[in-house]
Design a protein around this nucleic acid. Structure first.
Lengths: 223, 223
DNA sequence: GTCTATAATCCGATAGAC
DNA sequence: GTCTATCGGATTATAGAC
């Protein structure tokens, strides 16, 4: 069942995407890179959309490889910290791969994400929830909903790497790595002073002890 | 020096961008909406790039209007909290405006951002640094570099709204508002337990008491 | 200032010969 | 399985008449 030519097309498609981005990706360019004419591609792929779906699958393979190395850590904290490092390194070393994980399916000409890709996103998010939960169980992170806490951490990390990759910070990569860690440390320690923290939280959450419903995370990515 | 037709074109351009996004924006569509043929537009605008630059200027006008209302707050904390609310409401009510503030200039066919837009971004970022600094001065936020702390808060907020607007969370808007506040509260209070916080920070920052260089923020947005 | 007409490219996808 | 040829569409932008 192996289709060598299809594999060759996918390889070229990934290279083309990494080189020119989603906007610069076209079936005609892809055909040129493969060394055939454009119609020949349609013998192996139904259309552009299906090619891009395979490219996203490759992006997930790369991404999870970086993340799951964190499981070699021997303590919950080590695993969480290594997962954060892996997230950062992936985003820095492969910004185009990182980008396509968060691109809306409509931008790729899809009505919705294929089910298997949606499932991949859920699995990655579950990985984060598990890393947070075991730290809570050990008393390293404050008790609470691990899903909520993981969203806070994820949003912070995603925001930082997105802003950096878009060039909003004029710093070199090593400086940014230090910033990323320092900012993570501020999140763990808290931005408010001890005296003000309780009051600030109360003002933000309202008087009543709030229990926000857990969101259903559709996938880690791509709505 | 008023050019009424140019104003009309810009109005239609903003409506077209808000309706169809950057990908769906073309000079032909714009001409159709204005009620003229495409070449007529080039009497008033040099090219598409210049039209889009004016659209981004409008986005900044809207954005700063939301933000600067926060200055009506009577205390530093009230001003900071209101700024956060304004940021959230702007991103929720005008996701397309929010989006274009962070789009890379190359995606709009520009080599770089016009100087005045770059300056707008810097001004907005300075606004945030000022909100943080006055809270530090009052002992509400931990002492430190206001620029660093503001980046942590900004990344967190940007990450959350980006993920929500891209549809990664399957929650309604009101639930997300509550999540946004709750997540902000977690950032102020800190994710780690009091017992673990110091150790975690030390492990993240290294043994030596670290002073990360302040990044030069090129503009709040758009590298 | 607006028009018609057009240049010059690009795109995804298909029909049908070989 | 690949080719040539082509359909049908998009785009930015310009030349020149009115």
């Amino acid at each position: 069942m192996s289709d060598l030519q299809r594999d060759r097309i996918l390889t070229c498609a990934c290279e083309l995407y990494l080189k020119d981005g989603l906007d610069g990706f076209s079936m005609r360019k892809l055909a040129r890179d493969v060394g055939v004419t454009a119609p020949a591609l349609y013998r192996h792929y139904q259309n552009k959309e299906h090619v891009l779906a395979d490219v996203v699958r490759e992006a997930f393979r790369e991404f999870t490889a970086y993340l799951y190395r964190a499981l070699e850590g021997r303590t919950p904290w080590e695993r969480l910290a290594r997962a954060g490092e892996g997230y950062l390194e992936f985003a820095l070393e492969h910004p185009r791969w990182y980008e396509i994980l968060f691109i809306a399916p409509e931008q790729m000409g899809m009505a919705a994400l294929p089910d298997d890709l949606e499932a991949q996103g859920c699995a990655v998010h579950q990985f984060w929830v598990d890393r947070v939960r075991e730290c809570m169980d050990q008393g390293l992170l404050r008790q609470g909903d691990p899903l909520q806490a993981s969203l806070t951490m994820w949003a912070h990390a995603h925001g930082l790497v997105t802003l950096f990759n878009h060039g909003a910070f004029q710093v070199d990569v090593d400086t940014f790595r230090a910033q990323f860690r320092a900012s993570g440390a501020r999140m763990l320690m808290g931005l408010a002073t001890d005296e003000f923290a309780a009051e600030a939280v109360e003002q933000l959450m309202g008087a009543e002890p709030v229990e926000v419903d857990s969101p259903t995370v559709k996938g880690m990515m791509q709505g």
